[in-house]
Every structure is written in structure tokens, then in C-alpha cells.
Design a protein around this nucleic acid. Sequence first.
DNA 1: TAGAATTAATAGTAATACTATCATATTTGC
DNA 2: GCAAATATGATAGTATTACTATTAATTCTA
Lengths: 224, 224
Amino acid sequence: MKNLLSSIKISVPEKIFLKDPESSDLGKRIIGNGISLIAEIGFDSFTFKKLGTKIGSNESSIYRYFENKHKFLLYLTSWYWAWIEYQLVFSTSNVSDKTERLLKAIEVVTRTIKEDNNFTHVNEVTLNQIIINENSKSFLTKEVDSENKEGYFVVYKRLVSRIKEMILDINPDYKYASSISSTIIEGALHQHFLKDHFSSITDCDTVTPTKFFQELTINAIKPN
Amino acid sequence: MKNLLSSIKISVPEKIFLKDPESSDLGKRIIGNGISLIAEIGFDSFTFKKLGTKIGSNESSIYRYFENKHKFLLYLTSWYWAWIEYQLVFSTSNVSDKTERLLKAIEVVTRTIKEDNNFTHVNEVTLNQIIINENSKSFLTKEVDSENKEGYFVVYKRLVSRIKEMILDINPDYKYASSISSTIIEGALHQHFLKDHFSSITDCDTVTPTKFFQELTINAIKPN
DNA sequence: TAGAATTAATAGTAATACTATCATATTTGC
DNA sequence: GCAAATATGATAGTATTACTATTAATTCTA
């Protein structure tokens, strides 16, 4: 995985940025340090001014890469979901058993990220923390419909569709394939959050979100 | 329901407000118009200054009721969940069949709110829209742990626990009672959001979130 | 090595998220 | 019915945010 990822470029919808941060050293420092700053102080307190100070660069330079901090968050979420999608496709591609394939896919989208591939400027463990805490804020806005039209959420939607297809592949008659797929992906983030902050209303302090969602899904899609 | 609700006061953790908005006319106008303003412009653009203008009152007067707009959101979410909890308790209290009771409870937390009881200053239909769009923002903050200690989320957690207990009542061996309960409540909001903005990744444009979560839960907790 | 492109520095604006103070109503307790 | 307490309104002020604009300094490239 390490070697493969270092040669593959995660692709993010182009309209999200003004200038591709992957294309320069400054851009990469914006991403790398942006991730650690958001993880540290939270997205709500995050500003380009603070990030500029952190990387010893100017606020106005960051504005040349991203219109505003919301676009920056969209960049990070798209990057993250594209990275997850890549893992999902890769780790299910040679699995012939349909159920095994689905279980593997659920694992990929629900597991705890523990290892940073330590190669790119992106620390995936930290980014995963950000996704758990901030992902919803990327679409819970008044601009969601126009941003959706611009294609800012294609990666996320494609990921939901992939798992939906795997479910329909097992049981074409299951009526809620899209809903359960979107529930797994968003629900897993929520369970990880609860584990960290509201442990009394989750079981995922002792059992993994992966196990929970795997069993839930298998029981749900079983024909009866 | 109408008559009952008009005589019962929904109770919100006291530390959330500086002065109980139910205790004065101005307070009630703050809540009532606050709800419609947030629904209109979104929580991110909402300010006390704008609300002051809307109700023909002064910004500083609103600050005497709520420390800041985040506390205001906590007030609205607590009120909403307390209102839902009341309906849940009321509509399950005389149901002797355990499964029927659980299905009723799931209905209460997942259904579309269509009717405003039109009696209090709170429009529940509009408030429900706010909850769908803004609920996550009440806890996805850096202050979540200290605010949790202050008891700001008790109502929400108690609601999750009530459904968890109903599940364990049916199958005491089910290992994920808390997780599925929290998934139903949060997941239902998410499905309602998807229905409105990302209809391609939900089935809830044709089938209801209620049906989806009822079937999901019944299949999940079945002993095997 | 000139010209283009990138980044840095500085300044400025309107809005936000408050706090503080003082004035004016309104309520209530005696 | 009046004084005291309480609630609300009006005004002003501050630090920060979220930018935009302009100009200067670097660096990269043909």
C-alpha cells in the first residue's frame, strides 16, 4: 500500500481549489500544516491567518490556493474519501465471493485509521480525526445545493454508490441499498465520535464499528 | 397531544441559558423568531444582531438570555429532543407488546414532523428542519467534553438510552443496543437531509426513513 | 539575463462577537 | 402610590475574522 500510494495521485474535483496545492512546495505545506492545525484547534477556530503564521508564510498566499476555509475543508474531505475509495477498490478487486467483498468494503470505510503512510505531506491518521469531527460541516450549509451542482461531493457520493452496488449484487431485491450504504459511512464516523466523547451511548468502546456495521448489514440484506 | 403539550413545560438543562426565555415575552420572541431566522439564513450566518433587528429589540438584550449563539443552538436542540422524548414516552406507555413498542418508538424519532401544534411560540416543523441541518454542530466542537460534563447533552443521551432499553427488553443478548439506537436517531436526521439534498444516495425519497430503520432494527436484533 | 510567475508585505474594509456603561421603562413589594 | 428592584434599550468600544487590493521582493524559466 505504501509504495502504491506514493505513486498514485489522489484526485480531487478541480473547482474546489484555485491553484492545485499538490503543484508546489507551499501548497503541500498548506495541506500538511492545515491538517495538523485543524486537528489541534478545530475547524471553527481555524483561520488562514493562523495557518500562515504556522507555516511562516503570508495569509494572502494561502488565498491564492483556496477561496476560503470552507473550500479548504471540501478539499480535505474529498481527498480523504478519494483515498478511502482507492483502498476500497484495491482491497475488493480480487475477491470473488460477493459477501466477503461487501464485508471487506465495510471494513475499509469503518475501521480506525492507525497508520500514516508517512510518505506524502498528508498524515492520514490526523486527517481521519478531522473527518470524524468536521465532515458533516462540509455539507450542512445553506450552499449545499449549488456546491453539489458544482460537483464538490462526487467522490463521497461515488463511494456510497459503490457499496450500494455490492449490496444489490448480493440481493437485488433489497429496497434500501442506498440508505444503508450512506448510513454505514456516516454512521461509522458518528460511532467513532461517540466512542471518544459520549461512550455511554455507543457499544463501540468494546466492539468495533466495523463488527457492528458488518453484522447490521448482513442481517438487513438477507432475503426472507 | 395539542392540549397536553400546552400545559406541559418542556424542560431544558438550566445551565444552557442565563435567563429562562420561557419566563418573559421577550424571551419567547427570541426563541420563536430565532427559530425562523436560523431556518431562513442558516446557523452559520445567524447573529444576535440580526435577530435583534428582526424582533425590534436590542442585541444586548438577547445576550442577557444566552451567552452566545452556540448556547442558543444547545437550547433549541435540547428543547427539540425533550419534546421528542415526551412524545416517545407518551406514545409507548400503554403498549404491552415489546416489538410494537419499539416500532412505535422508532417511528417517533424518525418521522417527518408535519404539524405545528400552533400553541406555543415554538414552531416544531421549522425546528425539525433546523435539527436536520444543524444538530451535529451542537456537539462537533472542541468544547464537547466540558459541555458534556455540564450536562448539556443529557436529554439527547437519555433518548438514546430509552430506545436501547426497549431493544434489550426484546433481546437482552443483542450486543449493539446502544450503537444501533444512536445510529437510528442520528441516521434518521441524515436520511432526511439526503432526501432534500443528495437524493441519489438515499432510498428515502420513495420509502420513509421510518420504514427503513424499523426493518433494519428488527432484522438486527432478531436472535439467531 | 529579461520577463514571467510566485510569494511576501502591508494596508484597508465591513462584519462578527462580544463587553461595558448608562438611560429608561416596567414591575413589585410595602 | 411610591421607592426599589428588575428588565430592556441605546450607544459606544474592542479584538478578531474574512476577506480584497496593491506593491514589492524572490525565484523560476525561456
